[in-house]
């Protein structure tokens, strides 16, 4: 099974209502490599989030299988961490209590794990806000806190469901840069869903283009950018950037 952490084979999923069946995913197959940053783009409402929910095992596919290989060699499904579109930080908890929510639920809120959470807060410039409530943080800080809440659980695969789309453009650029760096330095495998093509190109190693509903894989596109540093601006000014952008744009325009 080489170095793939996940391999999806012919995954299909439909939503059912009294007025009929709405197919969301049809025969989706792709793989994710260990340590890879994969972006999935597609027309809005094409079932991208459904796909992430299936990978996170919140939904069971109606057809198809997922083969997996845990990086630590165990036979368990790799641990996934899911980051939603909104941060959903709980207003009645302090930032520290928010980022340790997952530990608390899993009854893993041991002193070592809490120290790890505090270290992450320190690394990502949120330590002095640990006793503050979410309302006192800016949108970008809240999104970073939400990422820490996910990272604290030590997931093997990070699932990012348009995590920057609720932010204004400027914050979005800097937060996506921050979060991209955090994910790269921790060496996590990540799957990002987005409808922002430049975001996908600047962050991902490989991009999967989905068709409209029911979603199928339309194209896979490896990304290689010649860039000075890891910032989103450097990526956007790379010489290959426009080539990729046009390519993706064409693929998605075919859909309409």
């Amino acid at each position: 099974m080489n170095d793939s952490i996940l391999e999806l084979h012919n995954i299909s999923y439909s939503y059912h209502s009294l007025t009929g069946e709405i197919p969301a995913l049809l025969n989706i197959s792709f793989h994710v490599k260990q340590g890879e940053f994969l972006a999935i783009v597609g027309p809005s409402g094409c079932g991208k989030s459904t796909l992430l929910s299936i990978i996170a095992r919140l939904l069971t596919p109606e057809a198809g299988t997922i083969a997996f290989q845990s990086p630590d060699g165990s036979l368990d499904y790799p641990k996934t961490g899911y980051m939603l579109q909104h941060d959903h930080l709980l207003e009645w908890r302090t930032i520290l209590k928010n980022v340790t929510l997952g530990l608390e639920i899993a009854h893993r809120d041991t002193p070592e794990n809490i120290a790890f959470a505090e270290k992450l807060l320190e690394d990502y410039d949120l330590y002095k806000f640990k006793e503050k409530h979410p309302g006192e943080l800016s949108g970008g800080m809240r999104q970073r806190a939400a990422l820490i809440r996910t990272l604290v659980m030590n997931p093997e695969i990070l699932l990012l469901d348009e995590p920057f789309s609720a932010l204004d453009y400027q914050t979005r650029l800097s937060v996506s840069g921050d979060i991209g760096n955090i994910i790269r330095t921790t060496g996590k495998t990540a799957i990002l869903i987005t409808h922002d093509l430049s975001e996908a190109i600047s962050l991902a190693d490989r991009i999967i283009v989905l068709t409209g509903r029911p979603a199928t894989v339309r194209k896979e596109l490896p990304v290689h950018l010649t860039k000075a540093d890891q910032s989103p601006l450097a990526a956007r000014s790379a010489p290959e950037f426009h080539h990729y952008f046009n390519l993706l744009w064409k693929e998605l325009s075919h859909e309409k």
Partner: peptide, 14 residues
């Protein structure tokens, strides 16, 4: 109560 907050708990394994 926001259904997405419930989803958050499920994504954290709750």
């Amino acid at each position: 109560v926001d259904a997405e907050k419930a989803t958050l708990i499920y994504t954290l394994g709750g």
